[in-house]
Structures are given as C-alpha cells and as structure tokens.
Design a protein around this nucleic acid. Structure first.
Lengths: 235, 235
DNA sequence: CGTGACATTGAACCGCGTCAACCTCGGTGG
DNA sequence: CCACCGAGGTTGACGCGGTTCAATGTCACG
C-alpha cells in the first residue's frame, strides 16, 4: 500500500492517441489521428498512497486526468479540522478551476497508488479554439462535480451516522463486481461523514455483527445490499 | 411576505439590453446593441414566496436568471426528509444542468418574492455559436456552483450546530449594509444545517442572550461580527 | 376577536464525542 | 528468526449536545 516516496514521480510524456481511457477522457472529442500528430506536452505522473497531487490555495497551471487510482479532495476549517468533499477515480478530471483562473480549491491526496496525466491549462485553451466540443466536455465535468457535491451533502452529511455509513458502503460498492466494497481508513471515513474514527469503528463493528457486511480482510467487505438499503433509509 | 398565488406570474417579454442586472448576467458578453435587435424569446416570470420555480427530476428546457429575490435549492432523501443544498440570489442562474440534457437536479423554491428571466435552452445554444465567450460565462457559473457547494458542506454541515449557525449568519450578512442579516424561517435554517427547528430556535435565543446578535423584528438581525467569528471557529 | 402558522421553551432520552486503555498487525532491527 | 515497536483499529465508560414530544407563546391575517 504505502512505499517510500511522498511526491509524484514523472514518467515521461504520454501518447493520448493510445491512452487506455481515451474514450472516457477529456479529449475524446478530438479525432485520434489528430491527437497522434500533435505531440502535446502532457506528462504522465504517478503518486503513491498518501502523496499530495496539489494543495488548496496554490496557483495551478494544469489539470489532472486520473487514469487509475483513488484521490480525496479535502477542505479545511478555521479550527484546523478538515472534511473530504469528494472522491475522484478513473476518468475524473481534477483542478478544472484553474481553467477559469482560480487557485486550486482543494487539497488533492492520493489514497491508493494513482496514475495521472498532467495537462497544462494552455493546451486546453488552444485545443478549445479548434475543437469547440471541448467546451461541452468541460461543462459536463463541471456539471458532474456539482451533482456529485450535492449528492455528497444529502447522502453522506445528513441523518444518523449509521445511515451515512450504510450509504457510503453503497456509494463505494464496485458495481461490476457485485456487492464487493473496499473501504478507506477510519479517519478518512470520519472526514467524509463528519464524525470521529471511534464512532465509525463502532458502527462498522455493529454492521458486521448484524450481518449487513462481511469482513474479507484488509478493508475489503462483502455487502448485503438489501440490508444496507434498509439502514440507509433510516433516520 | 406570502400572497395568494403559488405559481409564477408571466409578465411579458424582457428587453435584455435595458436589464437592470445586465452587467452581471449571462449575456453580458454580448454587445448591448446586438441584444437590442435580437428580440429574444426571454420571459419575465415572477414568483411569490413559497412558489416552486421548478421541480427535481423534471425535464426542463430553460434556465432562469434571478433578477431579485431569494431561492432555495432542495434535494430529498429516501426517508422523506430533505436538505437545502444551496441558496441563489441576484445574478444567479438556475437550472444550468438542462443545458447538458439532464433533468433538473433540485427543487427550486422562492423564499421571498422573486423576479426571474426564463431563458430557453435553445437560445443559449444558438447564441453560443456566434459568441463563444458565452461558454466561458457558463463554465464560470458552474465552477461557482461547485465552489459554493463545497463551502456549504464545510461551513454549514460540519461542527457543532452553534458554530454552523454562527457561520450561517456570517454567510447571510449583507456585506454592503454592514452587520445586518435577514434570517429565514427556522425550518429552512434547520434544512440548511441538517438539524431541527427546535435546536435552531434554542441556539438563536442563546446567541441573543450572549449579545452576538440583536433581534430587530421580523427575522432581521444586527450581528456582532467579532463574536460570530469566534463562535464560528469553535468545535 | 378568533384562527392557524410558526417560534419558543421545557423535560426526558439517547446518539455521539471524548478520553483512555487495549488490541492487531506489518515492518524493522538485533 | 524472533522480539520489539509504532500506527491504526477496537472497545469501554462517561458526559454533553442535540433530538423528540409536548405545551405554550406570538403574531399576521381573516
């Protein structure tokens, strides 16, 4: 899970035209043959678990596409506590606010080994001149972020902690591999739900006892979707 | 505060070129003389306090610019409770998700008499063809929404209810008319903060006693900004 | 003057935070 | 190879903050 390095590792320039997630990526609107001949200065950067991708308040000049991995976006309160406001995965784009001239609005931290493409802001501007559909793509991403944020608030910041944890399990469930779920560290869960690691731990133990989830080792769980849905509706 | 009608009242077509909030509006990027000759099918619609502007899940074909008034955007939970996820005021644009083909993602309800311009989606598409800067405008609005949502979560859904209420006062303060603040009904406040009307009422009474706020009648308050900031930092 | 919607207050209960002890497990060094 | 160590997870006891339910107060409006 965790290795030595804290900062991202540069791994050379990427070839968008042969990207594994091309069809899900921002530049999917650009014909592959054109991408191939453009030689864009897009870098492949990897982050170990725990590494920071960028920090809140920093003037950035690039966005990041996540090819694989899991990233948390956090914000801080005057009193020093913090809250995770979103998770980003495969296909997400981070730091879109820099396209509009704002500094980064979150601290982005890798939760698992994460592979990203760093795309300089100016490249996006340039491409948008020739490919107006790129605007649609960006608008779509922003719209998705708004939707995600609103759902986050209603699902994961409302009601009893028990219900929130059930909703988090359902939220994290790998839909393809049915009813399997990889959970985060207790402190991260607490920062998502607005509670404490202790309460989190207690309630998860409770869910295990009641049979709503089964521990498979190393934070992997098999979920009883039915029961979790019932609990999610409570309170 | 509340009159008879529940639905919006149609008040004729608007003249964008002479709009009171033109410089803050979506179409500010379009030269006034061009706006004048276009005769856009944009309607002026008013809503009384309590009236619904649109409902979550409905297929919409228009966005709304708020010329004046106050609007709450709500989402609902499986168990019937609901949460206010954002407030919109003078200059805000509602329903941008329809531009991307999604149904409305909130129920939008006027909290005070509200004057809006209803702009059909197709008009935006059309104008964007000639005025690409319009995309920047829309992206800016979306980005603002994301930022607002994230702040909402960290400020108004985190920490003790006492701290949240203090932050809400600071959030609602009319910056120009210093330290004055118009509060909402207790139930709406509760739906913003994720608590109950009773707790809200109790804590507001407490803040009055401690001198952090002074009641001026009909939900108007004069705030002691210093004290509120101190309380906002607690817990 | 009566009525209904909303705000306030009280009292009892309990969910959750807090603090502290203990356990578990993977990594490290002797 | 094993014993130790430290980080993170678990569990217990206790108290506070916030919910709940119910009664009462307040004000705008018919």
């Amino acid at each position: 899970m965790k290795k030595s390095g804290i900062v991202g590792n540069w791994h050379g320039m990427v070839h968008c035209e042969s990207c594994s997630i091309h069809q899900a990526a921002l530049f999917s609107v650009i014909p592959i043959e054109n991408l191939a001949e453009m030689r864009l200065p897009i870098e492949d950067i990897q982050f170990n678990a725990g590494a920071s991708i960028y920090d809140i308040g920093c003037e950035g000049s690039a966005i990041f596409t996540i090819r694989s991995g899991l990233v948390k976006l956090s914000r801080f309160l005057p009193n020093g506590s913090y809250r995770i406001v979103r998770l980003a995965r495969h296909g997400s784009v981070l730091g879109l606010e820099t396209l509009l001239g704002s500094p980064y609005e979150h601290t982005a931290t890798a939760l698992s080994p994460t592979f990203t493409c760093r795309i300089p802001r100016d490249i996006v501007y340039e491409l948008a001149l020739s490919y107006q559909e790129l605007y649609q793509q960006i608008m779509q991403r922003l719209c998705d972020s708004v939707h995600q944020a609103d759902e986050w608030l209603t699902l994961l910041a409302t009601g009893s902690i028990r219900a929130r944890i059930a909703r988090l399990f359902l939220y994290l469930e790998d839909k393809p591999h049915n009813s399997l779920c990889t959970l985060l560290g207790r402190e991260d869960i607490a920062a998502i739900l607005g509670t404490t690691p202790e309460t989190t731990s207690r309630i998860i133990a409770d869910l295990k006892r009641s049979g709503a989830i089964h521990h498979l080792g190393l934070n992997r769980f098999r979920c009883n979707i039915q029961m979790l849905h019932t609990i999610a509706k409570e309170s």
